[in-house]
Design a protein around this nucleic acid. Structure first.
Lengths: 344, 344
DNA sequence: AGTTCAAATGCAAACGTTTGCGTAATTTTT
DNA sequence: AAAAATTACGCAAACGTTTGCATTTGAACT
């Protein structure tokens, strides 16, 4: 706290200049070896702890990374944080984590605060509001001040930015193709909130795959949901209420998939025989769903790791923009694995 | 970055002293109203952003809270963070979040780094290693430097500390009593990792409740697990392999409960008729388990909120130590709700 | 015109640390 | 013994901001 011992305090004790203490503590060869030891021992004894704040002021870098995410309640986001920490802890960095709750005003406020705190860079996943309405002034401003910004998942529509994303399109394509190969004729999609990149990309992957197999997107088979099991349940209920029911469902994420599964079972349809189901994200509980849930892994932890690597490379002066795209992986489990399926 | 415009820059532009600029930007009445406006407009135009670092140095407070947690992959921890942010964002604070992976060395390292960064306080949930082996020197040191430390969940065994915890004992007692009231005769417990407060407290609550109803803890009905569905599955498998099977299971948390449920269903036992099941934490997916999982809510978000409040009160000079204990809440769902049950 | 007062601004120190340069003191070299 | 080199340390500025205390300026009094 306020009574922390400083270099000046130690200097006073030894009746010498602060510079001497500083050099002694940093093992500078200019200082007599005995003096050094004496000072170091004393500093240790009184619990001297370097004040990083003054260093940040001096060096114009804070050894801190700002992280802005729309939410922190899903596996994907926490895995990203784990990935960031895995790389940045050994490198001596700290993380300033800010959760915007998908709210643009909060995102802007947090961005300002991080800039004021002079973080060395910002890893950001844009809020839904920001993305929907293309409210990019705050981002532009930060970029114009040459603050390195690394986009994760939801990125800024400009060519010259750094970003690390998963190929959601491909993941969705794989999931849909898998359902087709399992013999599904009417594949529904539980579509994520509009305006969010991942929702759009996953829908596009779904759409493209259907097209590839000569099918059309049927409007009544696409329901929009929020990323929660409750919404998944409700939307699936509507699907099942329709005359022409689906025999396969691709859910925008696993939580939604859980909701879908619940109502499908309540209506006594068999999974995967009557309806095959695939989710997205491959959350740890996916395998422990009522019927083990097939899912597309988006390598969440790797997103964090790669973002951290990208950040470090920027700290080392690499200035050209990098765009990393990670490959999704389809994990097939019971919810979609049909043993006897019709070949297309 | 390094080229950020400072008060000095502006002062040079206006050929006046930095102090004038500072006062003008802070709307100090001492400065001529027109001068103020002119300066403010210019500052706005060139995108001046206050450098919080210099302020931290001056004021000896960083408007940052350090958060040290053993893990970030469960609902409980993310909900705590949400609670912290909900209170501290409006108060103008930022969060430095550090994940120790239950590792003592990392906890120590992070603590040092946070102290060096002069965070205003630290909210910490001790790592398992720290707790197991009572490796408290780093904590003692921080406390001796009068850095406010607020313990969450796993706390430090000293009387005069600030802490916010849930009454896990009571929650476990309630869960066990509920199973008894549902007519369970042989209630097993999936015990969390030893050395962790919540594991111990939940076991004690289970034990005390059994005692209250004149029963003994049967060793073969208590299995130790890690906080994962995989472990829950494995331990439950062993329980079911025993000659005298349980007819009720109290799992140390919901993930473990999911694992238990999986294997119970695979063995074709009926839930809750053959085996009633209760978890802990009330994760969002609990209601979407194969059979909706009964659970004890520990008010995770409230832990964050209360910790934040406690922190703010300390920032306002309240120095006496506070110990907040939150009440758990039993949420009964299908996994334990028996319609016809024997009264004890 | 001299004095008093108010308004507006400047000065300098402070927060804690680092670092280039200057300068003693001591040793080595010629 | 004088010159050169080495060793060990101090000085002061710098990072960006705030703030108590001068100081300046001009106006309003006697």
């Amino acid at each position: 706290m306020g009574n922390a011992v400083s270099i000046k305090d130690i200097a006073r004790k030894f009746k010498c200049a602060p510079s001497t203490i500083s050099r002694a503590l940093n093992d500078h060869p200019m200082i007599n070896i005995d003096t050094r030891k004496t000072i170091q021992e004393y500093a240790n004894k009184v619990g001297y702890q370097k004040n990083t704040i003054s260093l940040s002021l001096l060096n114009k870098r804070s050894k801190t990374l700002g992280v802005i995410i729309p939410s922190i309640s899903h596996y994907h986001e926490t895995a990203i944080i784990e990935g960031l920490e895995a790389i940045l802890q050994p490198a001596g960095y700290l993380l300033n984590i800010c959760v915007t709750n998908e709210c643009h005003a909060l995102e802007k406020e947090y961005l300002n605060r991080l800039v004021a705190n002079r973080v060395d860079a910002i890893c950001i996943s844009l809020s839904q509001e920001t993305f929907d309405r293309s409210l990019n002034e705050h981002i532009d401003l930060a970029i114009s001040r040459s603050l390195p910004i690394i986009f994760m998942d939801r990125f800024y529509h400009a060519l010259d930015v750094d970003r690390v994303i998963t190929d959601d399109f491909k993941g969705a394509f794989m999931a849909t193709e898998h359902l087709i190969q399992m013999g599904c004729q009417r594949i529904a999609h539980l579509h994520g909130p509009r305006g969010i990149t991942v929702s759009q990309q996953r829908f596009k992957g779904y759409e493209a795959c259907l097209k590839k197999y000569g099918r059309e997107v049927e409007e009544e088979l696409v329901k929009q949901v929020k990323f929660s099991p409750e919404c998944g349940l409700e939307a699936t209920m509507h699907l099942l209420d329709q005359k022409a029911k689906p025999d396969g469902i691709f859910a925008v994420n696993d939580e939604v998939g859980f909701g879908a599964m619940k109502v499908i079972q309540e209506r006594n349809y068999k999974i995967p025989e009557d309806i095959a189901l695939v989710g997205f994200d491959d959350i740890p509980l996916a395998a422990f769903a009522p019927i083990a849930l097939s899912s597309v892994s988006r390598q969440s932890k790797k997103i964090g790791e790669q973002s951290a690597q990208l950040f470090l490379s920027k700290m080392n002066g690499i200035s050209d923009h990098q765009q990393v795209t990670l490959e999704p992986e389809l994990i097939v489990r019971s919810s979609s694995q049909r043993n006897h399926f019709s070949k297309i």
